[in-house]
Design a protein around this nucleic acid. Structure first.
Lengths: 185, 185
DNA sequence: CAATTTAGTGAGTGATTAATCACTCAAATT
DNA sequence: AATTTGAGTGATTAATCACTCACTAAATTG
């Protein structure tokens, strides 16, 4: 076909493939997104996606890993820049950083879809690992109590529910009940 | 084929189909479970499933609706039989009832998969409706504050995460952090 | 009993999709 | 200049899957 002016090496391609995978899987989940959609988004052939990632499962897991990587980086940075040094203050700063992170939805939706695909052992394993790192980070950097960290995660999950169902569009009282106080999301 | 001794009428069939759908969709989610699997579980032909439920989407939504129906029944009953009449006591009783309900996982997993499939408008609508009824019930029957009800839902979501990743199998400290105090689950 | 309605299926069909293969082309190496 | 290597694709394959249709057996009705 037409001459390709700029060739990327495999590692650059890998990066653009998982960027595409992150966004495409976030939209339709594991079972409902064809690998062809990832290839199209990345602007390369499906065949080459399969050359760099041998199965759809491997590709999805790679996207998940990138997702947790981003979350961890963001929360680590937030913990460092927390104005208030108190445990609750640091946890609060992490929560706000997470809120800002998930405005684009992809990071959030990948987690939702991963939970749904957790019957695949590799997926379950990565969710567990991501969660482990996240909990340990929150605990170590904030010094907050177990109960506070548990609550931190619980409200993160509530946030996922709110976003997937677009509850913020609704003015009903019940929706406000779930939404209230999570204003930064 | 062989003579069928006992024929059920359509409504009975419908009931057994959604019972099968509930269990099969709970295992592999919307995108990854073929309708043939539902038919097999119900012990009837795929063609007849499609006669009673015109599309896979309609079938899934029907299973979701049954799921919320069961949750609502259970929580309503729990609110009635709460020993302590205080708002927190009633909410606690509802939480425990929910915990007992989801030991079989199907009710829980359908919700997780529904959240993942919420880009389908009908699915999103039913999740919203189920959530609305649940929040209103919790509020009306317990009389608890908005914050308490919000927390009730948030910890329900945390519970979903714990179950999908089988965190109870793990003895690690971080897993205990998430798990602690939710002992009835 | 004849006619009609209801429950139910076997055998497809067309579309989609995960994965493979046989290639091409350009750049680096010898 | 000849050879190897690495990036990349078009075409295909084998399987799966949502959905349809022509049909039969049984129950119901008149």
């Amino acid at each position: 076909m037409s001459t390709n002016l700029k060739l990327s090496d495999a590692d650059t391609r890998r990066a653009s493939i998982i960027a595409a995978a992150l966004s495409v899987f976030a939209q339709s989940g594991y079972g409902s997104t064809p690998v062809a959609a990832v290839a199209a988004k990345a602007g390369i052939s499906q065949a080459y996606v399969f050359k760099l990632y041998p199965t759809k499962e491997v590709l999805f897991v790679a996207a998940m890993e990138r997702c947790y990587e981003i979350i961890l980086e963001t929360l680590t940075a937030a913990a460092d820049t927390a104005p208030d040094g108190s445990p609750e203050g640091i946890l609060e700063a992490m929560g706000e950083a997470y809120a800002r992170l998930i405005v684009d939805r992809d990071i959030l939706m990948i987690q939702v879809h991963a939970q749904s695909a957790a019957d695949i052992p590799a997926v379950k394993a990565v969710v567990r690992r991501g969660l482990a790192t996240l909990v340990r980070l929150a605990k170590a950097r904030s010094g907050a109590s177990d109960a506070a960290v548990q609550s931190f995660i619980a409200f993160g999950q509530l946030c996922h529910l709110i976003v997937t169902t677009d509850l913020t569009e609704l003015n009903d009282d019940w929706a406000q009940t779930l939404w209230k106080g999570m204003s930064h999301y």
